[in-house]
Design a binder for these strands. Structure first.
Lengths: 342, 342
DNA sequence: GTGAAAGCGCTAACAG
DNA sequence: CTGTTAGCGCTTTCAC
């Protein structure tokens, strides 16, 4: 006598001499709703637990048009800031019973578009994306289609999609104000990629802080076009060679700050004695640097958590009006030893 | 006149007055195999491209029992080492046309088991896991079932599953030898979680290097039970207070090294003047620390790449004998300024 | 060269 | 209280 296959509802149904629907009902917790015999229900439920059986999610997804799956498109998982977001999103979604399909866009718009397309094709129930650039047009249509989609970090309030990001304007302003309060007047800014919203807003904050003190914005000392260490190194070197008399540097990313530190060291300039630094994206190691860096901390974990929260709301209320409202997370300045009082 | 639905084979078939099978054949590149009319084929293919149509992967998965999906269970994405692995795996799988389902086990065995279970249930075609601990029993059964599964980082050659990891024994030995060559004799080891294979092997390497010089292994200076910063801080503090006369510390993770640095700074001990350090897991910031840290670098990207390569092979040859062979990646020592010659 | 039909595993409307 | 049935969207065998 051959044992029944028990890897499907059908198999189990056969084994217990009931119909597929009965098994389906029991396993989806609808036993009492359909008033299935207590005995039958118990037997089946127990068996399923023992055998670790769960209805095939693929078949379920096909039937229900709901896959219990969430997509995440992230710019660069290897970057600690994004890793934090991803980590939190992974944990939050897991706790809610969703699986997470991850796609790393490498900060490339084309890859990002493809990833988003592919994820919808895969029928994810919802999606979180950390856009790579200022282009949101390819995402805007999903606002109209009322898809559950939330944007993180690089966002635009205008396209009608819910979002969560840091208050980048306030961050730029706060960092600059801190420098200003310490008597600095010539503050260079390593801006990262200027075609990103975050960079743009932080630079605006920087300009606003300057303006508040009646200091002219000097484009010659707002430099750079990438967020990486090499960029920070090169641009700082150039800055130094140009002979511009800056007394402080505001670095819009931590690799940028590291690069600046390298260029400074090579030039024999000490921090904070010769030059002060405020860096973006506080990292665990910053306290341990030769000159512990004063930094702006973003709440990356909260960012992930908030994104999931909003996404879930949207998924639960598919027909609610997509207000497109967003969350602006506060940032904080962690004072350490890289800013000298002039 | 209402437009045809074109989001399924059926819709397209209707639109062009052909059968579903014809459309399916065209879109799966089997047009010529079935000798479908060149004209028909072209029209359909073109339309699909224009409309960006792709056969529903869920339905396809159900039918084909193949989801074009790979699972990744990682211990902790927020850790740069794992982030590197994950990043590379994400890129490699994407390039091969697979989607990646990510699960973060937080280094917890129970979560890891659940994640693995869930992923198989979700019918992933293959899976990569970075085990959280020394327990591999729950994975061993998949070796017998001939599933496409490869282990990364914490691995065991014995369970018959293919794996890729660093040569942790050599790494521990190399780091210790470096210290020994600089005249150190009392070398403490911050071992991280001793119940992990990586820790165990590195400590064995450490012991072997010591033995090679005829130095006794002193369990009193091999301490710790976690890989994080706090652990490094506390254990270093204890070590210092215990009055054991160590001249060097081997830290088996970078947070551990950072913690040690903090404890050392508090105690007014300078690196490398008063005490030398070699750290595991070279990180970009290490060169910029007050005392740039000499470190052991693991090839985390290569690790991810190798894992994908092996996985793909296994997936392509489902009936090949699972040799369970593995890849042992070499590590390298990056000398900087944290080791003093005695 | 093309179509009809079965079936992957599941849920839910409908029928008792 | 339980079963029968249709159908989610797809691929593939078989038939013509």
């Amino acid at each position: 006598m051959k044992p029944h296959q028990t890897n499907s509802l059908k198999g189990i149904a056969k084994k217990f001499g009931v119909s597929v629907s009965t098994v389906s009902r029991v396993l989806s917790g609808q036993a009492e709703k359909y008033r299935i015999g207590a005995e039958t229900a118990r037997t089946i439920a127990e068996f399923a637990r023992k055998e670790n059986f769960t209805p095939n999610p693929i078949a379920k997804g096909l039937r229900l048009r709901r896959t219990n799956t969430i997509g995440l498109v992230i710019a660069d998982v290897i970057n600690p800031f994004f890793a934090g977001i991803a980590s939190e999103i992974a944990n939050a979604t897991r706790n809610l019973g969703y699986s997470l399909i991850l796609s790393d866009s490498k900060g490339d718009l084309t890859l990002e578009k493809q990833a988003v397309e592919l994820l919808w094709q895969r029928q994810v129930d919802g999606m979180i994306v950390c856009p790579a650039s200022e282009s949101f047009e390819h995402l805007a249509r999903y606002a109209k289609e009322r898809r559950a989609l939330v944007l993180v970090d690089q966002v635009s309030p205008e396209i009608g999609l819910p979002y969560v990001t840091s208050d980048n304007f306030a961050a730029g302003k706060m960092a600059t104000a801190h420098l200003l309060e310490h008597g600095h007047k010539r503050i260079a800014c390593l801006q990262g990629r200027p075609t990103t919203i975050t960079s743009r807003l932080r630079v605006q904050g920087y300009a606003a802080a300057l303006a508040g003190r009646g200091i002219a914005f000097d484009p010659a000392i707002v430099v750079g076009d990438s967020f990486d260490e090499q960029g920070g190194y090169l641009d700082t070197k150039l800055l130094l060679q140009s002979g511009r008399d800056v007394t402080a540097i505001l670095a819009l990313s931590d690799p940028l700050a590291l690069g600046a530190l390298r260029a400074l060291a090579e030039a024999g300039r000490r921090v904070p004695d010769d030059i002060s630094i405020v860096a973006f994206d506080d990292q665990p190691y910053m306290a341990h640097l030769a000159s512990p860096l004063t930094a702006i901390a973003q709440a990356s974990l909260e960012m992930g958590a908030a994104a999931v929260k909003i996404l879930i709301e949207r998924m639960r209320a598919p027909d609610a009006v997509t207000t497109g409202g967003g969350v602006l997370l506060p940032v904080s300045l962690i004072p350490r030893k890289s800013v000298r009082r002039m």
